[in-house]
Design a protein around this nucleic acid. Structure first.
Lengths: 110, 110
DNA sequence: TCACTAGTACGACGTACATCGTACCATATG
DNA sequence: CATATGGTACGATGTACGTCGTACTAGTGA
């Protein structure tokens, strides 16, 4: 069976905010925003187990943040930027800018 | 003792997103955005207990979303719009627009 | 002084969550 | 077929969270 993705009009703000309130998931989304190339779950530099990875990608998918396409034995992940921008204009951009800023701050602090 | 509020540069994106991922707290923030008049915790139309209310207001305060000033026996709550806009430009506005849109949608659906 | 109001503190409870390990299923590739 | 790769499923575990009730404190005012 193919994977469940919420329709654009089904996206829920609370679910999106909750999905992005986790550092690992925020990192995944930031990575996909920086480089939109669809890529495998394992291709993100997270220090968690495979099963934890699966969990986070499912949360992101069910919140409507990413799309997962099955491709052989892997799943190609991509950001649903258009859907998000249409449903929640400016939200994703604001979060990405804020996250980039926070990352720059914390790296500047050491 | 007076209440603890994070400094503008101490605001953490994850904490802000988490704080706003709860329906009750999102409602509080929306209410304060619609009418910026500082007002008591009890003056928000939430169907929860007093102690639950205290909990939610503390989460909002510790995330830096609201400011609480003690005034007699009550606490006057106000939105930290300026601090948030400075630290996370566009974020609060995008969330408020999205929330208003979602509320309009759900009320239109009945 | 005696209520009343606004809110906190603390403990409890059930649920959700992040994480892991193990077992398992596909699909390639030798 | 055997093995490696990419990922899921399921159960376990510890923690955090949302909610409540009760008890309490601090002002307000009759």
């Amino acid at each position: 069976m193919s994977l469940q993705h919420p329709q654009p009009e089904q996206l829920e703000l609370e679910a999106v905010l909750h999905a992005l309130s986790d550092p690992q998931r925020l990192r995944i989304v930031r990575s996909l925003a920086e480089d939109p190339t669809p890529r495998r779950c394992g291709a993100f530099d997270l220090q968690v187990t495979k099963s934890t990875l699966t969990h986070h990608f499912r949360v992101l998918r069910e919140a409507g943040l990413i799309r997962q396409q099955e491709e052989g034995t892997s799943r190609l992940n991509s950001l649903r930027r258009d859907d998000l921008d249409e449903r929640f204009p400016g939200l994703l951009d604001a979060i990405l800018v804020a996250a980039a800023d926070a990352a720059a701050l914390s790296s500047a602090r050491g």
